[in-house]
Structures are given as C-alpha cells and as structure tokens.
Write a protein that binds this DNA or RNA. Structure first.
Length: 499
RNA sequence: CGCGGGGUGGAGAAGUGGCAUCUCGCGAGGCCCAUAACCUCGAGAUCCCGGGUUCGAAUCCCGGCCCCGCAACCA
C-alpha cells in the first residue's frame, strides 16, 4: 500500500492554540483524510515543541516551579483541543519524550561523524527574540531589524553546523525540484536567502539549561530549532522504530507557516543531507490571516479561539470558511460575520437546501425509494476535484463541488420535477436519480473537507457505513446509489439561523 | 537600500499573456419541490499611477504612489 506522510509544525506550549494554529492543522487533516480516502497508508504527525526557553518563561509566569509539569499539562491541552476539533492525527510527538531524545542524539552523532559540527569560541550578537545569532550586517541602527531590539554581545563556546557547506547542493535541489518549496513566491524567497545570506549556524547553547544535552558535552544543550526539526523523524520512529521510520519517511508534505520557511527549506534539508537522510518531497507554506482586518494579537484581544468559533456554527462551517475563503498559501482575513454569511449562503442555502429539496421530492414522488438508475457521468468534476486536492488548492476543490451543487439546483429548475410528476414519470425518475447520485458524489468529495457533513449526507441518502469503506476508484463510478434503497427522512444539514 | 504580502464593480475575493470571473449586496422577473430557500436577466470595474515589451497585458519588464504582515504575545 502506498503511504502518505504529512506533518504540521510542532507548537510551542506557552499558550493555548488560537485559530491560526488550527488553520495549519486543519490543512494537514484535510490532506490526511483525502489520502486515507484514496487508500493510502497515511500518517499525520503533529505535536508540541517543548525544549524552548519560551516555555520556561511561560511556566514561570504562571507560577509553575516545575517546568516539566507545566509542559505536561499544556501539551495535554493541545492534544485534547486538536482531537476535539476533529484533527485526525496519527501521531503526537513531544520533544521532551525519551524517544525524541534518543533520535536527536542519533541524528547529532551522524552529523558529527560527517564533520559538519565544529566547536567554536564564538563571540557574536545574540537576539533573544530570534533565538539566534545575527550578524553585524543584519543590524539596523544597531538593532535587530526583526525584533527592534539591541542584541546582546555573547561570548560562549558553541557547536556550529556547517550550513554554508550546503549552499550549492541546496540551490541545486531547489532548482531541480520546483515542487519542493510551495508556493512559488516562497521558493524565490528561500532561494535568495540561501544564495545571499545563509551562514553557518550555532546549534548549541551554553547558557541555557532547558533542552537536550549535547551528546558528549553535557555543559551544552542543543539549540531548540535543531532539536525541534528532528521531530519529523522521531515522530515516526527514527532512533527507536526503524521499520516504521523506513515506512513513512520521506514526508510527502510538510506544512509550515510562512514565518518558519527558512528553517524548513534551508536548515532542515541541509541537516538531512548531512545525516544522509532523504529530503521531504514538499514543504508547503501557508499564509497568515488577519482578524477583521487586524493582525492577530493578544493585546488587541482579537485572537479567535477555534473552539468558540466551532461551537457557534459547527466545526464544518469553520472548516469550510478557512478552506474556501482563504486561498491556501496566501494571506487572508478571518471574520465571524463572513463566516456567518458563508454558513447562510453556501452551506444552508446552496448545499443544505439542495439536499433537502431532492430528498423531499424523493419522499414525495417515490415514497422515499431511490428511483431506477439512469446513465450519467461526473468524471470531469472528480478530475477537477482530485487535481485541486493534489495541489493543496482546497478552495478550488470546494469550488468544483459547489459548481456541481449549483448546477444541480439549476437542473431542478429546468426540469421542474413537480410538473414531471404529473406528466412524465420516467423522466422524473431519471432527474431524481441523477440528483441523488450527484449528492452521493458530493458527499464523497466532502469527506476530507467537511467530514461531519459528508457523514450526514451519506446517512440521509440511505447509504450504510460501508459506503465509505469502498475503494475510491469504485466510488467514483456513476451509479453507486442503489436502486430502490430507502432514503432517510431529511433533516436540514445546516439549519437556518436567525442571528 | 531589513524580509515578505498586497492594491481587480458598493463589500469580499479568484484570475499570472488571449472575450474580466465568483460570492454578497442592489434592481427586475420566474418558480412553488425546498431551510423566505432555488433559477434567469440586469445595473455596476479607466483591473493603483506612469512608461515599456507584445498582434494582444489585470497578467511580463522598468519607475512611482499607497496599504498590510514580521519588530511584546502571535500559525
């Protein structure tokens, strides 16, 4: 069985998830569900990044003496929240776990053995905000241009990774594999960084105590990014379950936010090259969105809690909005008002009402039984949908489905089944069969995107649970809805709301 | 010369060389199966500005103006 391995970034647990975190995981979930539906052996990995100074600070701020206890509590919350929001992760990695430490140590030794780690007495400018050393030439008015803060001059013993040694190989890889970094605008950004700015990077800290000790030198801990990136390997068994690791690596898609693209498209592949491990096939960077036109900010108090948003309109409505309204890969805007509009128009009116009217007519004109099968085909719709999903163009995938739904509403208007009921039973049967079969296809295509809705549609169409166990290729074939099957009494999929 | 994203009808967006598209809103009509839903038609856009390339530019190139994100938390 072909596999599909997809990852989300691992998240800092210095606070609870907001809607931006959910967005990343949602995209990963939609992909994972899609490829599961297509019969792949899917592994979706997510988790928490725990060896960070930020977590230590957060623990202190919340009055925890025991950092690990704080992290355990918070990681548990992240796990539960994502689970409750319907993110179907197959693995959840925590970087304070033993299995992660073992894998990181193994990885370190491999890189060390290739001569890419060297010890330097380093005196440099350290920006606490970046959690990284920056160079004199990076400064603007003596400050870190990103954090507008004067960096500290730190002199310490550090281990370095020979990142610059991989410049040419990285550029070659980026050029030879246009699909490696997506979208294209990000590829250009990374390419320019690799070519012009990338330098060796310090991968250990002498001053910090929280983290994984450097193998062979317990006076140092491994730099949080070097440790964190390796989660993508340890989460599937690197270091403790080689069989599983071999099964899933390399990753098919690694989803990241646009802010961490350089770590994932320069440092990470170079680390893998050094360790002699194949590179992920694709790193896809999504954009950021604002809330009602303003940046997400805790001090502005506009950080949206995904659970609250899901409770108001349902998880599927939230999924629909994020996947449809915001072009994946680009920046966008989130607004509860617009979510409400999408709920009323696209979900309640176009999808919900279509389903309801078709089922009602089936009940009325055929006593709730699926009429005799008729010919038809939806090949082009499926093709369009599949292409969009393969390209991570979730909005385009939804568009393909919605074009079918709108066309079905038009078909009803054109055929006027309520008149055919009096004049032409045969044609009435053909029209309704066509509509029911289109709804079945829509339910299938919605499975990865709006899983709850897809399940409701399946049940209303009188299809058993086994329907969704069928092979994808078979399900795509016209005529999957059985003649004479009994459809369920129609309940609105998205009840009209008056708020 | 810090890095990046963007400027398309009233609102929100898609479109990256070939008749300017979609949703909402607005106007008119149709339908009566349906969740006051659905369907049709219409009004409404100098595609930020100025140059250039091209048979042809919203799209490619050059210059400019403006907005936004990263700089305390923050995908």
């Amino acid at each position: 069985m072909e596999k599909f391995y997809v990852t989300t970034p691992i998240y800092y647990v210095n606070d609870v998830p907001h809607i931006g975190h959910f967005y990343t995981s949602l995209a990963a979930d939609a992909l994972a569900r899609y490829w599961r539906m297509r019969g792949r052996d899917v592994f979706l990995l997510t988790g928490t990044d725990e060896n960070s100074q930020k977590n230590v600070e957060a623990a202190a701020k919340r009055g925890y003496d025991d950092v690990q206890a704080y992290i355990d509590m918070m990681s548990g919350r992240w796990f539960a929240i994502f689970r409750d929001l319907g993110i179907t992760f197959d693995g959840f990695i925590r970087t304070t776990e033993e299995r992660h430490r073992i894998g990181v140590e193994e990885f370190w030794r491999r890189v060390e053995s290739t001569g890419d780690i060297y010890l330097g007495e380093y005196e440099g400018l350290y920006c606490a905000g970046c959690e990284a050393f920056i160079t004199e030439s990076d400064l603007t008015d003596g400050q870190c241009p990103v954090h507008r803060k004067e960096p500290q001059r730190i002199k310490e013993k550090n281990y370095f990774f020979r990142l610059s040694a991989y410049r040419e190989r990285l550029l070659e890889h980026i050029d030879a594999h246009p699909e490696f970094i997506q979208p294209v605008s990000r590829r250009n950004e990374v390419r320019s960084y690799v070519e012009r700015f990338m330098e060796d990077i310090s991968i250990s800290r002498e001053t910090m105590k929280w983290g994984i000790p450097v193998p062979g030198d317990p006076t140092q801990v491994i730099y949080v990014w070097f440790d964190a990136l390796i989660n993508y390997l340890t989460g599937i068994g690197f270091g403790d379950d080689q069989e599983r690791f071999g099964r899933y690596w390399p990753a098919d898609v690694q989803l990241v936010g646009k802010d961490i693209i350089k770590f994932h498209c320069a440092l990470w592949p170079a680390m893998l090259m050094s360790a002699g491990i194949p590179l992920p096939k694709k790193v896809f960077a999504h954009g950021f969105f604002t809330i009602d036109g303003e940046k997400i900010s805790k001090s502005l108090g506009n950080a949206v809690d995904p659970q609250a948003a899901a409770e108001r309109y349902g998880i599927d409505a939230l999924r629909f909005f994020l996947l449809r309204e915001i072009t994946f890969g680009e920046d966008g805007d989130f607004s509860m008002d617009r979510l409400g509009e999408r709920y009323a128009n696209d979900l309640a009116n176009e999808l919900g009402n279509l389903s309801h009217r078709v089922l009602s007519m089936t009940a009325k004109y055929f006593a709730g039984k699926v009429p005799p099968a008729t010919d038809g085909s939806l090949g082009p719709v499926w093709d369009r949908y599949d292409q969009a999903m393969a390209d991570l163009r979730f909005g385009a995938a939804l568009d393909a489905i919605w074009d079918l739904l709108r066309d079905s509403n038009r078909l009803i208007d054109a055929e006027q089944p309520w008149k055919l009921a009096k004049t032409d039973q045969e044609r009435l049967a053909a029209v309704l069969y066509t509509l029911l079969e289109r709804l079945r296809a829509s339910a299938w295509m919605l499975r990865p995107l709006l899983p709850e809705t897809a399940g409701k549609m399946r049940r209303q169409l009188g299809l058993s649970e086994e329907e969704f166990d069928r092979e994808y290729e078979a399900a795509r074939v016209w005529g999957g809805i059985a003649e004479n099957a009994t459809i369920a009494k129609s309940e609105p999929l998205f009840p009209r709301r008056d708020d």
